[in-house]
Design a binder for these strands. Sequence first.
DNA 1: ACGGAAACCTGCTGGC
DNA 2: TGCCAGCAGGTTTCCG
Length: 299
Amino acid sequence: MPELPEVEVVRRGLADHVVGRRIATATLTGARVARRHDAGPLDLSTRLTDAKVLAADRRGKYLWLVVQTPSDDPRALVIHLGMSGQLLVEPADAPREKHLHASFDFADDGPQLRFVDQRTFGGLALTDLVPDPYAGGHHTHGVPVPVGHIAPDPLEPAYDQPAVVRLLKQRHTAIKRALLDQGKVSGIGNIYADEALWRAQVNPLRETAALTKPVLGRVLDHAAEVMQEALAQGGTSFDALYVNVNGASGYFDRSLNAYGREGEPCDRCGTPIRREAFMNRSSHYCPRCQPRPRVRRTP
DNA sequence: ACGGAAACCTGCTGGC
DNA sequence: TGCCAGCAGGTTTCCG
């Protein structure tokens, strides 16, 4: 469920259905789901027993529950959905999903929280909370240690767009690579990078330092805007892999202009959208509205 | 600093 | 019909 809008849809589901409840038992299936939890899956489930869920928070594509046991300081249950992770709120007697890796029962006997992940690139970890390195934010509990290297996303108060523009101006790298770098600005993945660049009419291979500050600002504005619009539609879902905690799909896929539209006419000029290999994945762009740079220099 | 590729996985599609 | 290459909303790590 990858990018910011889809993760935010999930976060809201957790805020509605999980925050305020007390975990009775956490069941982890297999070691892989907790591979990022240094002390192992057993430690993770032990520490979550009797923990109360205080909040559901997010930065970029990282999601976490602030949890607290009676004797301890609050900690973060960090959840990354990877490429195919899902969080589902379901009755305990609902059929077991094929790729179910974790389930949480609550003291109130309400529905379970389940972590399902087909490709298991996602996972869970319980970590300490540390002060947010980025000032002016709304993360009142701080941020989890593994989120420390993640930059603010365009939809949070700590996001400083002029600072990101200055950063990009200093780098000699392709604009799309920079957009996907979660340490510069977070939450943008392959879909919304392509969509933002299509909207801004900038080729993915253009060098950041060679773009003017106003153009860089526009690209980031479009990234924020397209993710905001996608969120309003419940996110982008091509299939049943990308669903909210109730299993429902979003429908922003209808509004995509570039991503996944190879060969289809550009909505601006009619030229067929092109797909090109980039960073072990694909870029989709209009060869006419987003012409390739003449030169790509690497000093 | 930067680019490229491979690694971690499962499942689906399309071409032959 | 069957097989196999190629591809998928991510991140990390290694190599040159």
